[in-house]
Design a protein around this nucleic acid. Structure first.
Length: 435
RNA sequence: GUGAGCAUAGCUCAGUCGGCUAGAGCACCUGGUUGUGGUCCAGGGGGUCGCGGGUUCGAAUCCCGUUGUUCACCCCA
């Protein structure tokens, strides 16, 4: 029997682990510099936590189990219910705005496909207790800050913004009933993935009038500044709709002040399939061959109270290590992490091995990465090993070391080498290596 | 959950009208070149050809099933 990694899961050998850590570290750096603090919850939750939000249908899509007492649990498939539960538990004692991030490992019992595995890491950014557009804009900014931290330019990714509130105003003015909105949102969310005929057929099945269908048919076409202006004129006589437009304008204005407007565009086609969004929504897309959204999020002003908490608005987004890696690979931006950059100490003579151990230990005591060969062999072979281990600097203990105390320090990247007194060098192991 | 393609060494792949002990490059290990690597030379280990069954004198090669994987759908938290 061949033992293999479970379907849709990954082994992380050192090379893959280095990339995963690099991505997760970017998540952490970006979160912290934008003023977010980290939280976490249990790896599994009671099954009811997910039933409340999504109904029984969700059960087939997650990994669940019973303990010996018959209590039902599920490995967490998302972070939002945990977040809402935690925030609700201490809602009154947390200072606002609550700016939290998390990097949970999640599992979903789905069939794997591109950008979607059964086990993955997700980055969650949320701002709660702040209803203004400033929080909306800051969320978008954090996503862009992350893209920039990985080297993704505005030519490579874009963020499409819209507002559920604006969409809902448009639908109301077309006299589409509230109970039809979820189905209409779901249809609009798919518009850009379908041919115009398929989309027409889809909305034809929603039980709408010809005129209403016509509105939907043309709605998603509104893109960019021109599209936004057209939406504004459509809602000119609608006070609520006009306010929603003004609100989204404000988000764009803040993003412009933060210097990231080149990444952002208006797109009526983005509405998000999820039921709980109430205001601004956004999705990021790679401009290359990948069509899948890289990250997505929006404002959810009723979610916390729906999950048993106090009335508290929130805005947030999430992305996963899987899609991030796909996008980076597409633009050839995955970093070369093969070089550890530490020291490798070589003896020019097996008699000097004790001195290798002494110097390695001196470096390690300073907290510096230092390695050596387990085998007493020629300088050539030791150099090969140093290269294989990704050493940044090689230290050669000279054969007359006993009397001269001389070591040679070689920078592996530049190829430059200098001979120096060992005590002198250990005062500053990273000293410049001249020609 | 539905449909289709793929499945040969760690990796990328050769190898089919079914036929001698299944190959290459890279990677890995060993030795040499008796003090300088990433870009030398020689040798070596490693695969029951995803797994199970069938057809056949004989299957990596044909058929069925199964598992994994890829792509799309459902779903997308």
């Amino acid at each position: 029997m061949k033992l293999q990694v479970p379907k849709g899961c990954r082994d992380f050998f050192p090379a893959e682990m280095a990339i995963r850590n690099w991505i997760v570290d970017r998540w952490q750096d970006v979160s912290v510099r934008n003023g977010f603090v980290e939280y976490d919850g249990p790896i599994f939750e009671t099954l009811d936590l997910y039933r409340i939000k999504s109904g029984d249908e969700i059960v087939s899509q997650l990994f669940h189990f019973e303990d010996r007492g018959g209590r039902e649990f599920a490995i967490r498939p998302e972070m939002t219910p945990t977040l809402a539960r935690m925030v609700a538990a201490r809602a009154n004692s947390l200072s606002k705005p609550i700016k939290w991030y998390s990097r949970p490992r999640l599992c979903r019992a789905e069939r794997p496909q591109r950008g979607r595995l059964r086990e993955f890491f997700q980055w969650n950014i949320d701002i709660l207790g702040e209803e203004s557009e400033i929080a909306d804009a800051e969320c978008v900014f954090v996503a862009i800050d992350f893209f920039r931290s990985m080297g993704l330019t505005a030519e490579q990714v874009e963020i499409k913004l819209n507002s559920r509130a604006i969409v809902s105003s448009l639908l109301h003015s077309a006299e589409i009933a509230d109970e039809q909105l979820p189905a209409v949102y779901a249809a609009l969310d798919k518009r850009d993935k379908l041919s115009i005929e398929a989309f027409a057929e889809m909305i034809g099945e929603l039980g709408l009038t010809e005129k209403q269908q016509d509105v939907l048919l043309h709605m998603g076409e509104a893109k960019g500044e021109d599209g936004f202006a057209r939406v504004e004129s459509l809602l000119a006589g609608n006070e609520a709709g006009t306010n929603h437009c003004r609100s989204l304008r404000r988000v764009f204005a803040i993003l412009k002040s933060m210097g990231v407007e080149e990444y952002c565009t208006y797109d009526m086609g983005v509405v998000r399939g999820l039921a709980y969004y109430t205001g601004m929504v956004f999705e990021a897309f790679g401009k290359g061959g990948l069509k899948r959204a890289i990250c997505g999020g929006g404002r959810y002003d009723r979610l916390v109270s729906d999950l048993g908490g106090p009335p508290m608005g929130g805005v947030g987004f999430a992305t996963s290590d899987v899609v991030v890696q796909d996008v980076l690979a597409e633009f050839n931006l995955l970093p070369d992490l093969s070089s550890a950059g530490g020291f490798f100490v070589i003896d020019s003579d097996a008699e000097r091995f004790d001195d290798v151990l002494t110097i390695v230990s001196a470096l390690r005591n300073k907290g510096i990465n230092a390695q050596f060969s387990y085998k007493r062999q020629g300088v050539n072979k030791q150099f090969k090993q140093a290269t294989a281990m990704g050493a940044g600097r090689v230290v050669i203990i000279e054969s007359d070391y006993v009397t001269s105390k001389a070591v040679s320090l070689k920078d592996m990247k530049s190829g430059k080498q200098v001979t120096i007194n060992v005590e002198e060098w250990l005062k500053n192991p990273f000293c410049e290596v001249p020609e």
